[in-house]
């Protein structure tokens, strides 16, 4: 027959041992941290274009210039 006092002691011991068992199992955990690095500055290019023609002969004549 288990007395109330002995059961109380058993419960306390059980709680303590269960805690120790859990801690020993968790101590195997391994944490892996991965950081994806920043790619840094981004550089891109666009273009602006224009095709420049010399003034036309008609334009020059109309403005009194020599073609």
């Amino acid at each position: 027959m288990l007395t109330k006092k002995s059961v109380t002691i058993l419960i306390i011991i059980a709680i303590i041992l269960a805690g120790v068992a859990i801690i020993t199992q968790l101590s195997d955990s391994e944490e892996v941290s991965t950081t994806i690095p920043t790619t840094g500055n981004s550089i891109k290019g666009g273009n602006v274009g224009v095709n420049i023609l010399p003034p036309s002969v008609e334009d020059k004549l109309a403005n009194g210039e020599q073609p």
Partner: peptide, 8 residues
């Protein structure tokens, strides 16, 4: 690309 075209 931005093209201002052809002109004088």
């Amino acid at each position: 690309l931005l093209d201002f075209g052809t002109g004088a």
